[in-house]
Computed example of a mutant assay.
Amino acid sequence: MTVRSLAAAAALSMIFALSACGGKKDSVDTEEDFSAIPVPPPPPAPSGVSYDVRHCLTQEIPESEVIGGGHTVGQAIFPDTLTLDFNRPAGFPNGRLLTDQVVDIMLAYLFLDLGEEGARRFADLPLNPPSNDVALPAGFPFLAPAQGNPPRADRSGRTFDFVDEDDDQYDRVDRVGMPLVSTAIVPFERKPDYNDATPQEDVDGDFVGDVEDELTALTNSFADDLTSAGYRLCAAD
């Protein structure tokens, strides 16, 4: 199993989560839709292996130009919000830029000893494209022009179809405050509750046990692959 396989597992979890979005807006019921989807079994763990992942959540994120010292991984996850310090440069985890490799960085937060490996250990692997295939503009709308067929959309602003349904016609399928949290380390059956929750419920510790359990299961499954590849884990065996 490689780091690419680890990312694939997270992507698979996202696919199962997003499949609950189907149907018309007024017929979406997250609890019902999720209950109809079979829970994917976790990858088998090596026999007799069990890791303690508490240190993965209590370890400090290395100080950088975008974030000061003293912040732990757990503090970055709970509450699940996007933090922005205007006194520091923008860039994940201080906000996020379109070019930030947020999934790779979050995987390092969750599985690696950041003091030994650093937060960019996975991000710096030569697996991702070095840049966007079309240069991103420095100003609004910040996204590169659309490519391919059908032809580019009219930029006059007349072709937008804004939806103005009442709030109760929507279900939240991912809070997306911190990337990868809901999709990868919240248990499948708890995703609806987590995505419907508030930052205050995060602070109250409502999902700490769920995240620890899921991170433990993932670590037990992938630890041998990561250690055999030479990575220093944050979890203790």
Rank of each mutant, 00 (worst) to 15 (best):
T183P: 10
N195W: 11
P151I: 00
F122A: 03
L110E: 02
D193C: 00
P151M: 03
L136F: 05
P129H: 04
D133T: 03
L107R: 02
P126L: 01
E165Y: 11
F122T: 00
D104W: 07
M106W: 10
Y109G: 01
Q147E: 10
D174N: 13
D164R: 12
L114V: 01
L112M: 07
L180G: 00
E189K: 13
A197C: 10
G177L: 06
Q147L: 15
P199K: 06
F188T: 05
G209M: 10
G118N: 11
D204G: 09
F207A: 02
A108G: 06
L112W: 12
S131H: 06
D166P: 14
S182C: 11
Q169A: 10
G157D: 08
D196E: 06
V181S: 04
P179G: 07
G148R: 12
E116V: 04
N149T: 07
P129E: 01
R121C: 02
R158Q: 06
R175Y: 09
S131T: 03
G118F: 04
P199F: 08
R175Q: 12
Q169E: 11
T183M: 07
R120S: 08
E116I: 01
V173T: 10
Y194V: 00
P187E: 08
S182F: 00
A108T: 06
V203P: 14
A153I: 01
G209T: 08
L112K: 04
G139E: 13
L114E: 04
S156V: 09
G209L: 14
G209F: 14
S182D: 13
N195Y: 12
E116M: 01
D133C: 03
G118M: 03
N128D: 04
V103T: 10
A135F: 04
V203D: 15
G177Q: 10
D124N: 07
G115Q: 06
A184Q: 04
Q169S: 12
